[in-house]
């Protein structure tokens, strides 16, 4: 498993994702990108749909990408990487290429959970050999914090504004990790930017498999979450500690929870640190809504525990 030392050595040997991009101060996305790329020793080709990462890493006249990189439209990253992967397959078959090249998509939650879901599902079903990394910061941050289907219930967003009658987004977030797992692909995982070694390990394990691999990484957005700019790691960590964002893997259908918090930390502890949930601590109906959010966190956690029990590595 790659240690911090190994990751750092690889970065020193050849930087794949440089600084100097224009992602916001306190944005957690570049840490994810660097960790993922450093965890793959083989040559990589990267595709990114429209989103914060794409916009901020490819501003004229520079680029942060030291690997072949293709920006595609908002909805089609998985489809484009399918074509890239298939083309390389032909090159190998014809003997024009002997190296093993790896294919990685970095996409946001909007480009994955919403508009890109059809392309993702198609690529998973066809079985292309690629890793899809969802940088999930739980809203359309690039266009100004509109709600996505990854946005948690009750979070404020510009298209889910908080008012007297409607307390932010009315719907629960989509459980995309499970939707992807239902495709029966070899490797699916959830990770968080607060647990980078866990993430690197997951990438390395994923790359042992031929076929589609998917990692849903919770990253934090100080702008959209309305949190201090130095709190990204704490925010993600607290999401894991409260069981809001469990770290787990589904390897060839076998569930494994990578980290089980010893203490039960109420989700309220995480909610109260973020401006997007501020109304829950101000408005009279807030208590009830927090209880609903907690109930859903508990429900999903219990379900995950059961899945691990029934379909676990030893089960």
């Amino acid at each position: 498993m790659p240690s911090i030392k190994v990751l750092a050595e690889r970065e020193e040997r050849g930087v794949r994702f440089t600084g100097g991009h224009t992602l916001c101060a306190g944005c957690a996305e570049p840490m994810v990108v660097r960790t993922v790329l450093n965890a793959i020793p083989d040559p990589v080709v990267v595709a990114s749909p429209t989103g914060c990462l794409e916009v901020a890493t490819s501003r004229f006249p520079g680029t942060a990408w030291n690997v072949p990189w293709i920006h595609v439209a908002f909805e089609n990253a998985a489809a484009v990487i399918s074509g890239v992967e298939a083309a390389y397959k032909v090159l190998r078959k014809k003997g024009l290429l002997d190296k093993r090249v790896r294919f990685v998509v970095f996409a946001g939650d909007g480009g994955t959970y919403d508009i890109g879901l059809q392309a993702l599902s198609g690529a998973l079903e066809r079985g292309h050999d690629f890793l899809y990394v969802c940088l999930n910061n739980e809203a359309y941050m690039n266009t100004g914090v509109q709600r996505s289907s990854a946005t948690p219930k009750c979070a404020a967003a510009t298209t889910a504004p908080v008012g007297e009658a409607i307390p932010g987004k009315p719907q629960e977030r989509k459980d995309l990790t499970e939707i992807v797992a239902a495709h029966g692909i070899p490797y699916v995982a959830q990770a968080a930017v607060s647990h980078l070694i866990d993430l690197a390990n997951k990438v390395e394990r994923a790359m042992n498999y031929e076929g589609p691999k998917f990692i849903n990484v919770l990253t934090t957005c100080p702008l959209g979450w309305r949190t201090p700019r130095d709190s990204a790691i704490q925010q993600a960590k607290q999401a894991v500690e409260t069981r809001y964002w469990p770290l787990y893997e589904v390897i060839e259908g076998r569930y494994k929870i990578n980290y089980k918090p010893k203490e039960h930390v109420p989700v309220e502890e995480w909610l109260k640190t973020q401006g997007r949930f501020r109304h829950l601590f101000r408005d009279p109906q807030g208590k009830e809504l927090i209880a609903q959010i907690q109930a859903e966190v508990d429900r999903r956690w219990e379900l995950l525990l059961k899945k691990e029990q029934c379909f676990g590595v030893g089960g």
Partner: peptide
């Protein structure tokens, strides 16, 4: 669906229409 430079239309109607 969110897209620049129309998002202000959506954002205003997200707030105004439910009212």
């Amino acid at each position: 669906y969110p897209i620049t430079p129309q998002s202000e239309i959506a954002e205003r109607l997200a707030w105004r229409l439910p009212q």
